[in-house]
């Protein structure tokens, strides 16, 4: 790759912002599974597989699944955050494939938050 200049990096930054912020992008929903070592030890990889299975079955192309590192509240792993466009993100915890199915069907597709699995809504205070 050619050497980038500072100005070129700034342009890349603008473009990248569109990618990760839903309101500017083309996706309707984003499912973030938290996969640090603690999450993986608790079963986060199964959670990712379960979400992907549900997504495949649904045939939808406007939802993305992504992974991040540890979200901090290790005792409630595996955790996932569901972000639908124009709605606050919802963090779910203590997940298993059964709860993942419910979350995908009731929240991601149906728009109804699964109350008994949710930990909190919105973002952490910076």
């Amino acid at each position: 790759m050619q050497k980038l200049t500072i100005d070129e990096l700034k342009k890349i930054r603008e473009a990248a912002r569109k990618d990760i912020y839903l309101r500017d992008g083309e996706f309707r929903g984003k499912i973030i599974v938290h996969t640090g070592t603690c999450g993986i030890a608790a079963g986060a990889r199964d959670v990712v597989s379960a979400f992907m299975q549900e997504l495949n079955t649904s045939g939808r192309r406007d939802i993305i699944i992504t992974t991040t590192g540890c979200a901090g509240l290790c005792s409630r792993e595996p955790m996932a955050t569901v972000e639908l466009r124009d709605a606050a993100p919802v963090r779910y915890g203590d997940l298993d494939s059964e709860k993942v199915r419910r979350i995908f069907r009731e929240h991601v597709q149906g728009g109804l938050i699964v109350q008994d699995v949710a930990i909190g809504i919105g973002s952490e205070r910076g």
Binding site: T68, G72, T81
Partner: peptide
């Protein structure tokens, strides 16, 4: 934490 994918530099760049 919990927001960016650590395996995608673009996400780190996007968040300043």
């Amino acid at each position: 934490k919990g927001i960016i994918d650590p395996e995608r530099i673009e996400e780190y760049i996007a968040r300043d």
